[in-house]
Amino acid sequence: MSEDSNILKQEKEDLPQRKQPLLVLIGPTAVGKTRMSLDIAKAWNAEIISGDSMQVYRGMDIGTAKLPFDEREGIPHHLIDISEPEVPYSAADFQAGATQAISQIAERGKLPFIVGGTGLYVESVCYQFQFAEIGSDEAFRQEQERFATEQGAEALHARLSAIDPPAGERLHPNDLRRVIRALEVYHMTGQTFSEQQAGQTKVSPYELCIIGLTMDRAELYRRIEQRVDEMMEQGLVDEVRQLLNRDVPPAAVAMQGLGYKEIADYLRGDCTLEAAVERLKRDTRRFAKRQLSWFRHMNDIHWIDMGENFHNNLQTVHAIIAGKFQVNLEYTSNQSF
């Protein structure tokens, strides 16, 4: 090998390696992520990774607003229907699965594209959070479960809010497993879950482009209520009944999800259907508020107001992506990310 060749080889090795581009679309429930994600994926030669903590579960389609296979317009979707409802699926599980999917998508020359509204799940991948092996205290967990059974989920949630207000704001009282886990972390370490999260290093191994969708609060709430009505028309009650008939435990993580907890209470005779639906609408509005609260603490989000013209919004998104990744849209069909 000539001296010049050696010099060129060394110069190439010394060049900084470009980070893997990762596109992310976040926003509260019912804001319009699904529709926009399909248009973006088609334009940018992307494959979608679901960033929703509930869409991993099989047989839970209506209540999770899972996009039917025949409506995905040929775009591969990952981390959907990968776990049975009886089996808990954690943020650490999601991080591992999404990280693997990103590598595989990139190897195919496609753009990895996370779409979802579960803040911790998405952020854990974007910044490769370290999940500490804290362990568990089964006696403590059982004590909290008994307290929730006797005093109610709201009372247990109040315990968490008293010691860790940010976690209390983010977690729904029905999310019993995560509420108990947050209490357990404090019980075992003396440090709140929120303090541990705040200590995570927000340095990404990826070249991130994060798009956030938002809209007027009143319009978002109207869309949430409309979505709940549509879920009822599509057969949410039957979907929950089928899960209960197959003996999915009421305390399972999956059954604490929005729609499933409320309708299960109705099917057990604890409330009327009308009351269950109204509670579902209320809880979903509160969930959207918690989602926005989480996203406000994330870095480098390009916010798009979905109350404006959809076509103009889409063009704005394309311009943001092109500027971030320094790629012209017209060349993406042959672009290897």
Rank of each mutant, 00 (worst) to 15 (best):
I320K: 03
R58S: 11
V87P: 02
S124D: 11
S204N: 00
D216F: 00
D137F: 11
M188C: 04
S2L: 08
V327D: 08
V240A: 11
M232Q: 15
T189V: 07
L171H: 09
Y186M: 00
E225Y: 12
K261V: 06
S194Y: 12
K110Y: 10
I62V: 01
S194V: 09
V253N: 07
I62F: 00
R286L: 14
E145W: 05
Q315S: 12
S37R: 05
E71Y: 15
Q226M: 06
D164K: 09
P21R: 04
Y221N: 06
D175Y: 08
I105N: 11
G74C: 08
D4H: 14
E73A: 11
G27V: 06
L267I: 07
K281I: 02
T99W: 04
E71C: 10
S103K: 12
A43C: 03
T214R: 06
D137E: 05
T192N: 09
Y260S: 01
T29S: 15
R141C: 11
Q17N: 05
L273N: 06
Q191K: 12
E145M: 04
D229P: 09
L176W: 10
I26H: 10
F140N: 01
F94N: 01
A46I: 05
Q196F: 14
Q95V: 11
L25W: 10
L67C: 10
W44S: 10
H302C: 01
A106Q: 02
Q130L: 14
V237W: 10
D229H: 10
H157C: 09
V87Y: 07
Q100K: 14
D283E: 13
A106W: 02
N174W: 14
M188Y: 05
T192Q: 02
P173Q: 02
Y221I: 01
Q326S: 15
Q256L: 00
T332Y: 10
E184L: 03
F193D: 15
L67R: 05
K324P: 01
Q144Y: 01
I114Q: 08
G199C: 09
D305I: 04
D175A: 10
S333N: 11
V56H: 07
R222Q: 12
E230H: 06
V253Y: 10
N328W: 04
Y206R: 01
S2G: 13
T118E: 02
M36T: 10
E278Q: 11
T316R: 14
R279S: 09
A251W: 07
W294K: 00
F140I: 03
F69C: 00
R282D: 13
I320H: 02
D270Q: 09
G59N: 00
H311D: 10
R170S: 14
Y266Q: 01
L208A: 06
D52H: 04
G109H: 08
